[in-house]
Design a protein around this nucleic acid. Structure first.
Lengths: 156, 156
DNA sequence: CTAATTGCTCAAGCTAACTTGAGGTCAAGC
DNA sequence: GCTTGACCTCAAGTTAGCTTGAGCAATTAG
């Protein structure tokens, strides 16, 4: 990677700067903007300018995605942060509290799965419907992947 | 759901029976066959006939998917089971041992994330690259979702 | 000042994991 | 023995999440 030139004089970042800082691609950032995850301002010639705090915002996006949250879900979480101004520590802490609940639920769900796995795999239950692992309350899954009908997304 | 007629005389299941037992759609099962997750035999008129043990096989597929494994990854896991004959308890237990390792890793990763979240969200690290949460060793994510480049899937 | 970067928009392409539809065969119940 | 529902194949469509490419404007390094 060739080093980026020194930052622009202002406190604002060009999209390439933000990409370099987050490791995301420029196109991914533009895509995230279209989905409402970031809302850069434009300079007079139309180029995007991001707040430094958007670095953290996008980092959060990446982490939440690894957890299996969809972009839409992440957008809802991020809606708890202020638009336009740099979020305070307090803002982020509030966000992370809700996020932590999601995390806790997911961890608990996986532990339940682990603890039941041997029994279930080896047990006599021939049907998912009787199985303890059926229809787990872990709903953090991404829509569009996996057998949707089974997972409660029945068509109209 | 209208009740299915009594099972065919043999011990084999028609695709609709299997769908009813697993909650999967018929098309999903056909799709899984195409990807090598099940290998039904055909009767003389070309219809698929499944072993009863395929119910369990597909249940495993569903559970593994919720964990974030891709179909290809699941296929590799299932390759540990015998083809054609009904897997024994021993076969399944061996499979579940490997699977359990995946589970344990994933749980540990999430716990790490949870334990670092407050600190990280509120901390002064402005770059993912310095962040403890950057590039976690949790690679169970589905390819195709999320910023691929960031996650180590750089193009040729 | 000029060439190389970087940026912009918009449309199209791509992968995973399925679903839907067309067009046709089979088989199970009355 | 006929009709109705279950199957079959194959092609095309769908959603999420990006990437790629074309065509053009604005910066910036030298």
């Amino acid at each position: 990677m060739k080093p980026r030139p020194a930052l622009r004089p202002t406190d604002l970042l060009a999209i390439g700067d933000l990409a370099a800082r987050t490791g995301l691609s420029v196109s991914a950032i533009r895509f995230y903007e279209a989905r409402g995850l970031v809302a850069p301002i434009r300079n007079r010639s139309g180029q995007r300018r991001f707040l430094r705090s958007d670095i953290r915002r996008l980092s959060f996006v990446v982490i939440a995605q690894q957890l299996g949250l969809s972009i839409e879900e992440i957008a809802k979480l991020l809606a708890g942060l202020p638009q336009g101004r740099t979020p305070t520590l307090k803002d982020w802490t509030a966000l992370s509290r809700g996020f932590r609940a999601t995390l806790d639920a997911r961890i608990a769900s996986l532990q339940r799965l682990r603890d039941n796995l041997d029994g279930c795999i080896g047990c006599g239950c021939l049907s998912l419907k009787k199985c303890q692992l059926y229809n787990p309350d872990d709903r953090a899954r991404r829509l569009g992947a996996g057998p949707r009908y089974l997972l409660g997304d029945r068509p109209g």
